[in-house]
Design a protein around this nucleic acid. Structure first.
Lengths: 113, 113
DNA sequence: GTCTTGTATCGAGAACTGTCAATACAGTTG
DNA sequence: CAACTGTATTGACAGTTCTCGATACAAGAC
């Protein structure tokens, strides 16, 4: 930067506070893996869809511990919810969180496309 | 899974092909860092906004090499574009790519929120 | 040409991530 | 209770990522 920067640059302050940036980045990071994208996509076909944890082994094409690891990341990011019913655990998407993400792209820059 | 899975699980095939999942995950990964979220947010205030590379040092609060590293990641993800004008290099958002991301959330599951 | 300044790349270290085998935990069944 | 099955956790390894100092490259000023 240096002083000369004043010659080239406008104001350009960031329109997002650090807490919001951290939160957004956290959710994006959770979606930043192809395996997890496939899992979320399978769930997000509709908001009420539930998929048994055991089925994600086939959907993801990974071992059971790996699938469990990815499900945990998605859970902690608030993207999916789990619900035990009898022996099996069913996962579903959290529509509110996906709505938040979509809203994050509803900016001037995007709406004009 | 095992054979018993057939007892608990529906079809649940993934509605996204591997190539699309890889592509989506790649863009999400690029957004999976608070520094880059702040940089993109600063650019995305409107589609025509241009920010000098030198200004991102202040916006990101990181060293110049680190900022350059993050800008490269955003460039390679197609999220921002760079344009040299004289001495300085100006960055702007790529609205089409942001539109693609927004479209990724326009699913049944989300539109019903 | 040299000097100065903005930007990108290199190199290295610390921290994190994806993966799976082995193991532990949680339910159901007998 | 014990046995079985679905799920989560642990431990370890390879690969990646973030960060910055040092350095190289690029363009304008002199």
């Amino acid at each position: 930067m240096s002083e000369r920067a004043a010659t080239c640059c406008g104001p350009g302050g960031s329109p997002i506070d650090d807490r919001a940036a951290d939160a957004l980045a956290g959710v994006f990071k959770a979606l930043g893996d192809p395996v997890r994208v496939r899992m979320v996509a399978a769930l997000a076909q509709d908001a009420t869809r539930e998929i048994c944890a055991c089925d994600f082994v086939a959907i993801a094409g990974k071992s059971q511990p790996t699938v469990s690891h990815h499900l945990k990341i998605l859970r902690e990011a608030g993207l999916v919810a789990s619900r035990r019913r009898g022996t099996w655990i069913w996962y579903s998407v959290v529509p509110e969180r996906l709505g938040e993400l979509r809203a994050a792209f509803d900016l001037e820059a995007v709406s004009n496309v």
